[in-house]
Structures are given as structure tokens and as C-alpha cells.
Simulated assay, not measured.
Amino acid sequence: MERKRPSRFLGGLTAAILLLLTLWFGLVPAPEEQRSTYILATATTGGTFYPVGVAIATLSKQVLEPREGVSLAAISSAGSEENLRLLRSGEAGFAILQGLYGAWAWRGSGRLEAQAPFTELRSVTALWPNVEHFLIRAELAEQGSLSDLASTPGLRFSIGARYSGTEGSNRFLLEALGLDPDRDFELVYQGYGASADAFQNQRIDGMNTPAGVPVAAVTRALAAAGDQARLLSVSASERALIDARIPGLWRPYTIAAGTYPGQQEPVQTIAQVNFLAATASVPEEHVYQLLVMLYEHLDFLQAFHAATRAMTLPSATDGLPVPLHPGAVRFYREQGLELPDALIPSPREVDDGPLD
């Protein structure tokens, strides 16, 4: 299979970040012949995975490559499902994934049940929360929670682009609530921008666009709809039903009042983690040095994209669905983080003895 080539947009964005980094750090890339580069799979250029992946990759070229001779090269992709295929095949060494897809891959379940469990998958760091934004027309929001989705038979609902991570996670959530998306809704398969347009033009009654806060599509839809639209909360009982399927993956999240046009009250919803993943074959030292770089220069990433402002060292392992890479274990232990047993890889991969 031919490897994806970075788009012209990627080239332009990379060049812009390279210039900014050169000004920021006063560094220049190492000569071509000295580079050892891993592919970092992201998602489509219109989402958050892609620009954050480009920023991480370009940071690696400016900071990590001169120091360690290691860098990442970001490519666009169809998202989590394709990224897992690229990791399995060895075409990519790193990828940004939804937590749900990491859990499915590790278990060989859900939309990935036809595949063997991906036992070589490893977590590197949590990135930002993928926040659920269930939006419906105000006249249909009797309770203001996800229970309203079941109150209108044949609700015209945008579930996400077909075969996307958004479609997969939306189906998981709706099924956890006892709903059959194909039976209970009139499904529309659209991306975020198209969903906002369809909501504004009254071609759909609801949508869910999980992403880092704020989501441009939600801002646009609420700005146009005014008080005729409402973001739904997730009740404690609804969260319990979701949590029962994959415990600990989705966590409570509050969308602060005023985040979106006309949103006068906070919205209690849920979020899963988006995380940086690698394969077990990546050397421990490379992952360790990548994390040193990321957390030494977190201010650059946070200045580049708002989603990464949620990244902190204390929350770096929150909600991770698969064991950590040995290089990540070493880094977090050095930083004094307590790691749950579920995140520790096999003893053959990492020394579980006391630290010096």
C-alpha cells in the first residue's frame, strides 16, 4: 500500500510552524542524513488531531532531532480507525487516537471485533478531552438530558461522517442508553461543519460533535439558532449506563456557562480522552525523550492550539485505555506520578523495581 503523502496544506502549515519555532527557540533542523523519523498519523485537516499533530511533529524536528536525532512527521488520515491500521502495519510509529478506539483495539471489540486484540499498542500521554456536545432543537428538550433523544421517534440526527470515529463513538453512546441508532433515528452522515449548516437550515433536529472545547461547529450552530437550540446534559444515571460498558473511559466534564452563544448555564456532559499512542516496538529512549520535549515545551503547544491547554503533567495518564509505553513509565515515575497497575506493561518491557 502506498504511504499517504503530506498535503500542500500540511507543507504550508509545517513551514509556518518551523518559522515560529526558529524564532521561539533559535534552533534549526539537523542535516537530512542524520534524521530518524517516525510517522505520526492524525486525522482530516478540518479537525483538531491534524493541527496538533503537525505542531508536535514540527516541535520534534526543531527540539528533539538536534538533540537526539529523532523526529516525527505528521500525516493526515481518516482518523482513529485508519490510524490503528497504520500502527498495526508498521507504516506509523505514533498516532493520535480516541480513547474508545484504543480500548476497542486493545480488546478486539466493538467496531474492531473482527481484528485480533492489538497487544502491541501503548499509551504515551493523554492530550485533551474529547467532549460530547449533544445539541437538539429547544422544543424537543423536555428534560434537557440525553433522555430527550428517545422522546421523538424518527429524530433527524447527524451521527457523524460515515465510518468516522465520531460515528463509532456516537453509536456506542446511543446503544449504551438502550437506543438503536438505525431504528430510532433518521440518521444523517455528515461532518461537523456540514452538520452545523444542516441544523441551521432545519434539515436535522440534532447532532453530536465530540471535540475539544470550544467546537467551532457548535459555536456556529448556536449563534444561528439562538434560543431555539439546546445543549443536552448527561445525567448521573445516563453516565452510569455508559460507564458500565467500558468503566472509567468517559468522565464528567462541565462546559462552563458562556462557552457558546446563548449558553447561560453550565452544561454537565462527559468526555473521553484523546491520546498519543505508539507501538511497543518504538525504543524506550525515543518515547522518553519525546515526553521530555513535550512537557518542557508545553507552553508552545498551548499557544499554538487551544485544545492542548487541557494538557498538564498531573493529568497525563487520566483515562488512558491501554498500558503505557516503557519510555512513558520511566518518564512519569521520574516526575513522581503514581501509576495504576492497569497502565504498567509486562515486566519484560519495564523494570517494576524501586527507583533510585
Rank of each mutant, 00 (worst) to 15 (best):
E2T: 14
P6Q: 13
P6V: 08
R8P: 00
I17R: 13
L20V: 11
T22A: 15
A30M: 11
E32P: 03
S36G: 02
T44S: 10
T45P: 04
P51G: 08
V52I: 15
A57S: 15
T58N: 06
P66L: 02
R67L: 15
N83T: 09
G90K: 06
I96W: 03
Q98W: 11
G99Q: 11
S109G: 04
R111G: 14
A116Q: 15
P117V: 07
T119N: 09
R122I: 04
L127S: 08
L127A: 04
E132I: 03
L135N: 08
R137Q: 09
R137V: 00
S145A: 10
A150Y: 06
G160I: 04
S164Q: 04
G165H: 01
L177G: 03
L179K: 08
R183M: 00
Q200I: 14
N201I: 00
N201E: 14
R203D: 12
I204D: 04
G206L: 00
A217T: 08
A229S: 04
L231W: 02
L232E: 06
V234G: 07
S235Y: 07
A244F: 03
T254P: 00
Q268V: 07
L276E: 03
L276S: 02
L276H: 05
A280T: 05
V282F: 04
E285A: 15
H286M: 02
Y288S: 05
L298D: 09
F304Q: 14
L313P: 04
L320G: 07
V322L: 06
V322P: 01
H325G: 01
A328H: 08
E334G: 13
E338C: 02
D352W: 10
